[in-house]
Design a protein around this nucleic acid. Sequence first.
DNA 1: TTTCGGACATTGGACGTCCCATCTCCTGTA
DNA 2: TACAGGAGATGGGACGTCCAATGTCCGAAA
Lengths: 243, 243
Amino acid sequence: MAIASQEVSPARFSAQLRSNALQTRIMDLILERGLDVGDALPTESELSAELGVGRNTVRESLKVLQALGVIEIRHGFGMFVAPNNFSALVSGLTFRGRLSLRHKGEEAMELIDVRQALESGLIGPAINLLTDEHLADLRSTMEAMETAAKNGEPLHDHDAEFHRRLYAPLNNELLINLMDVFWQVYRKIHLALGTGPVNLEQQTQDHWDIFDAVANKDKALASERLQRHFDGIRLKLKDVAAA
Amino acid sequence: MAIASQEVSPARFSAQLRSNALQTRIMDLILERGLDVGDALPTESELSAELGVGRNTVRESLKVLQALGVIEIRHGFGMFVAPNNFSALVSGLTFRGRLSLRHKGEEAMELIDVRQALESGLIGPAINLLTDEHLADLRSTMEAMETAAKNGEPLHDHDAEFHRRLYAPLNNELLINLMDVFWQVYRKIHLALGTGPVNLEQQTQDHWDIFDAVANKDKALASERLQRHFDGIRLKLKDVAAA
DNA sequence: TTTCGGACATTGGACGTCCCATCTCCTGTA
DNA sequence: TACAGGAGATGGGACGTCCAATGTCCGAAA
C-alpha cells in the first residue's frame, strides 16, 4: 500500500477533506469557466467524467453545493449557478437552536443577541441613507400589519417585511439575507415550541414606535427602541422555553 | 420495507422538497431520540432501512447535514451529532465573494460592511462585560502579534485571534462563529486575489490603538477605531480588486 | 504481568448500472 | 394560430459491489 497514489487521493488526507476538495473543484470549475449567476453547469455525467469521479460521488457534492446556496438544481432541466440564497442556513441553525433549547436554550438566546446587535447597531447607518421612498415602503408595511392585527391575523410576515425594509437603504444583500435567516430560525424555533399567547396590538404598537423614531431620523431613539423590542422577544422566548 | 414510513413521497412534491424533507427527517430523528452533541447516529445502513430510502440517497442528505455542521462523519467509526461548527459557511460565502469580485466586488464589500457593523456595534457591550482576564488575554495576543510583525511573519492568525478575543466577554458562540466565518471568507478572497504589499507595523499599531481604547473602557473611541480599521480594510480590498 | 502489533469486524467512501420522474421543446393536429 | 402530446435530455433514486479507514481485541513477546 501507500505506493503514493498521487493523482487525487493520497489517502493521507482524511475523507472529509477529500469530499470537501471535490466541492472546491466544482466551485473552481465554475469560476474558471466564467460562469455567472443563472448560467448552466455541465450535466452530472459530464462533471463525473471531467472530474474523474463517479456520478454518485459528484451528486453528493452537488447536493452539498445546493445546500450551501452555490448552485440550483432543477430536476429534468439542469443545474445552474444560484443567486444569493442563504435559505440553506436556516435548517442547520434551526436544528442547533432546537437542540440547545432542550438544555437551557443558550444558543437560541445567542441568536437573538446577534439579531439585536446587528439591527440596533445598523439602524443609524440605515437612517442616514433613508429616502422618502424607503419610508413610504415602511409605512405601507406598517399599515398592512395594523390591518392584519385588527383582523386577528398572524403578523409574522409583516414583521419580517418590516425588519427587511428597515435595512433596505443599506443596499447590502448579505445583511438582508443574514437577517432573514435569523428571523426564520427564530420563527421555526418558536413554532416548534408552540407559540404562547400573542398580543397583536402590543406587537403592532412596538413596531409603530420604531417606525416613528426612524421617520424622525432619531437614530438614538430608534436604536434604543429596537433594543427593547428584542429584549421583549428574548423574554417571550424564555417564557415559552420554560413551559 | 416502507411499512413504517407512511406516505412521504407522493411525487407531488418537487424533488427538491423531498430531498430537503429527508434532511429534516434525519434531524427530527436526532431530536426525537434525544441525541445530544457527541452522540452517535445510526449507521448509514440502519438509517437507510429506517427511513425507507436507498443508502445513496441517505448519504446525500448526510453529506448535506455534515456541510451544514449538524453532524460529523468519521470514516470507519460512525456519525455523530456535531458541536457547533460554521466552517461549512465559509466555502459557500467564499464562492459568492469570489464570484462577485469578477464584477464589482459588491458582495465582498458587503461582507466587510457586516463585519464592521457587528464589531463596532458590539464592542460596547463587550467592554461592559470585560474582565481583567479577558484584557490579559487580549494583551498577550497583541504581544504575539508584535513579535510576529518584528520577525516579518504574517499576522493573520494573530489578527483573527485578536478579534475573536475582543468579543469573548459576550460569551456568544454564535457570534464568535459568525465573525470567524466572515474573517475566513475575507482571508480566502484576499488570498485568491493575491495580497498586495502589507505594512506589518501599521497593522500592528492599528490593533494596539483599538486595544488601548478597549483597555480604557472607552466605548466610543473603541467603536470609532474599529470603524476606521474596517475602512482601511475596505480600501485595501478595493485596491487589490482593481488590479 | 505488561505492552505492542496485527487480524478482524464495523462503518463510511466510491462507483456502476438500471430505471423513474420531471422538465423543455418541438412537432403535429385541430 | 393555438394547444395537446410526445420525444429527448437531465436529474432523482435504488441496489449491489468493492475499497478504505478506524477502533477493538486477542495473542505473542518482553
